[in-house]
Structures are given as C-alpha cells and as structure tokens.
Write a protein that binds this DNA or RNA. Structure first.
Length: 274
DNA sequence: AAGAGACCCTGGATGC
DNA sequence: TGCATCCAGGGTCTCT
C-alpha cells in the first residue's frame, strides 16, 4: 500500500519521464478513475497539456501543468504508475493513459479501482486540509502534543488521520509506534511530552529510512520500472505476527485498531507503566 | 466535535 | 474440484 515513501519514490522515477512531454491524447479505460471534473471535460482539458514539475503532499501526487492547473492523483491501495511504449497492449487493470510526445504512454493501473485523478485549478482544493509533512520542521513533539491534546481515540488511529500528519499509513504507523515503544491503543491525549517527542522522532526516522530504501513492497507496490522497494526487509513488527520481537524476542501480537490490523510487541509496548 | 463504523473494490487465501 | 466467505486498507461519508 503506497504511503509517503512509496509515493515519493514513484514520483522521483516518473518525473524525468513525464516532465516537458506534451500529452497528445488521453485514454480513460475506466471512467470512475476521474473524480473531477467529469470524464469528458477531464479528457478535453488534459489533451495538449504539459507537466512542468511534480510535487507531493502526503500520499497525493501533484503534477503542475503548463496552464497553471494541477493534476492531483492518489494511488490508494493498489495504484501503480508506469511509462511504457504506446504500442504495448493494455493490462486488464489499466484505468487511465496519457500519450506522450516521445511515443511513450504514461499509464495508471489500479486493480481495486480506489485510486483517483483530480484536475483542479489549485491543488489546495484537494490537499488543503492535510496536516504537516512528517519531515517538516514544524512536525515536532510539541506540535504532536497539541494535536493529541484531549483526544481519546487510539494513538494508532490518530497517526493515520491525515489532518494531523500527512503521509503515514498502516505500515509506518505500526513501525513508528514500535520504535517509540508506545502501545497502539494508548489514548492520544494520554501521551506525555517526552512520549510525544519520542513518537515524532520515530515517525521521522522510519519515514527517512523507508525513503532511503525506496519503500516497502509487500504485494502490489512497484516502482515505475517494475522493481520492488527494500524496506520490507527492515520491518520490525508489521505483518510479523508470531515472529520474535527484534528487541526482546517476545512473539509479535496482532490486534485490530480502528478497523486496521495492528502489530506490536506486547512486552515492550504496554498501555500503562508498572 | 469527535469517534466508530460502513462503504467502495478485486482477487488471493481459506474453509467446507 | 468448486463454490462461498473472509480479508486487505485509504479516504470519505454517515450516524451517534
């Protein structure tokens, strides 16, 4: 499932292939992929456009276009981006394709049809309500403490709330909570200042490492050249149920928090001390 | 306002 | 072997 490190890795590979290439035609293979405007208008307005630069906010990809509009895309669960020769047959799960001037085709493939494209005048229409980037200077323990104040929901659920911090999904939430040695069901507002500091630092560290290792490939995530990431080899708790905690050897537990599978060390991540 | 749960989807895994 | 059911989860929506 693409989270911040996967989205950034994909964008880094995609950028040199799509920037400055006029889009000569747009093929919508499944109309539901276009969230706004309507499919016909999307097709008409994208034709002839050129990507000037790319960007990212949380898990959203931003493609800044030459008419000052912005193509915003979200991969959700199973979205993939590839750039292939235009003559290559479509895959069953291809949903959207942009024909580029150099004869290549930029394709969006998405088995489960959760991914979306938005063509907007201002990207803030889509990403305006997101919290800070985890690697931003303003994402600190103090900031986190302010956001968590009074909140009774599980810290795991709050880490997944994109309005608090943008880009974290199920994998990195579990990994960060393990690194900070916090139980995923701790109430957000119960975290002490030092625990907030530790959690903010853990989030930054896990995101930095996952970026360096080009993301986590468990199933569907692929870089645009088809190769997998490497962070799956660095996972300490995620999807390691029953395997020994890398720190103390206790078998990793799996529970459901906020409807999401959650993995943690039951000995080192406890709800209350003593 | 905040929190909990449903919903959207497909296909792989599991169970009978 | 074949069929039904469960499960994965990001974001949005509804309900309380």
């Amino acid at each position: 499932m693409p989270e911040l490190p996967e989205v950034q890795t994909i964008l880094d590979a995609l950028e040199p292939l799509v920037v400055d290439q006029p889009i000569s035609s747009v093929t919508i293979l499944w109309p539901g992929v276009v969230e706004r405007p309507g499919a016909d208008e999307f097709q008409a307005r994208m034709r002839g456009r050129r990507v000037l630069s790319t960007g990212r906010r949380g898990k959203y990809m931003l493609f800044n276009l030459d008419d000052a509009s912005c193509l915003v895309m979200h991969l959700r669960m199973t979205g993939e981006m590839r750039v292939v020769p235009a003559a290559e047959p479509y895959h069953k799960h291809d949903r959207l394709a942009f024909r580029l001037a150099d004869g290549q085709e930029w394709r969006f493939k998405d088995q489960r049809k959760f991914g979306r494209a938005y063509l907007v005048e201002d990207s803030a229409e889509i990403v305006g309500k997101l919290g800070p980037e985890p690697l931003a200077e303003r994402f600190t323990g103090d900031f986190l403490r302010g956001q968590l104040s009074g909140r009774t929901a599980a810290i795991k659920s709050l880490l997944l709330d994109q309005r608090i911090v943008a880009g974290i999904g199920n994998i990195y939430a579990d990994e960060a909570l393990f690194r900070a040695r916090l139980h995923p069901q701790r109430q957000g507002g119960s975290l002490t200042p030092s625990e907030c500091d530790a959690l903010a630092a853990a989030v930054k560290a896990v995101i930095r490492q996952a970026l360096a290792e080009l993301g986590t490939t468990l199933r569907d995530y692929r870089r645009p050249d088809g190769s997998p990431g490497e962070f799956q080899n660095s996972l300490q708790v995620f999807q390691r149920t029953g395997e020994p905690c890398p720190s103390c050897g206790t078998p990793i537990s799996r529970i459901v928090v906020g409807g999401r599978s959650t993995h943690f060390c039951p000995k080192e991540q406890v709800i209350s001390r003593r």
